[in-house]
């Protein structure tokens, strides 16, 4: 009986640790606030307050599959290098040029991306300064 109880306890502990490893770390308020500050000064003009973009001109960020996707390197590249590939984005084309924001620090790029990945209807893992640093190194 005792054995069984210990076994069950172990299973429970395993489950709990597994679960906590899977669910993303909660995003700190300060990261979201920093991200928002950068969004307001650098991105808002084109992507708008509601993240809805401008039809046929500037791609929406709210609900965009690429914004919440696992491929964070792509998002980092877009911010560092700018974007005017004119590829189809979720079935539409956009005809403005997004300029590069390479002058932003690694932490700032990380925070603004974390912000857009977790604003409006979006929900996704955070982007870290280390991830930005790694992508930036490859661009040079």
């Amino acid at each position: 009986m005792k054995r069984i109880r210990i076994f069950l306890m172990m299973v429970l502990v395993c489950l709990v640790t597994k679960l906590s490893a899977q669910s993303p770390k909660p995003i700190s308020k300060s990261v979201m606030e920093n991200g928002k500050t950068i969004y307001l000064s650098r991105c808002l003009a084109c992507h708008q307050v509601d993240g809805g973009g401008v039809p046929h001109l500037n791609a929406p960020l709210d609900g965009a599959s690429a914004v919440i996707a696992a491929d964070k390197a792509k998002l980092i590249r877009i911010v560092l290098k700018g974007y005017s590939d004119r590829v189809e984005i979720d079935g539409e084309y956009y005809s403005n040029n997004m300029s590069a924001h390479a002058d932003l620090k690694d932490q700032q790029v990380a925070d603004v991306l974390t912000y857009i990945r977790n604003s409006w209807s979006n929900k996704a893992t955070a982007v870290t300064a280390a991830e930005v640093k790694a992508v930036r190194a490859k661009l040079k």
Binding site: Q48, V49, D50, G51, G52, G53, V54, P55, P60
Partner: peptide, 10 residues
């Protein structure tokens, strides 16, 4: 109209 997306007709 706060965000352009909110406009029904243009």
């Amino acid at each position: 109209v706060t965000g352009t997306r909110g406009a029904q007709h243009r």
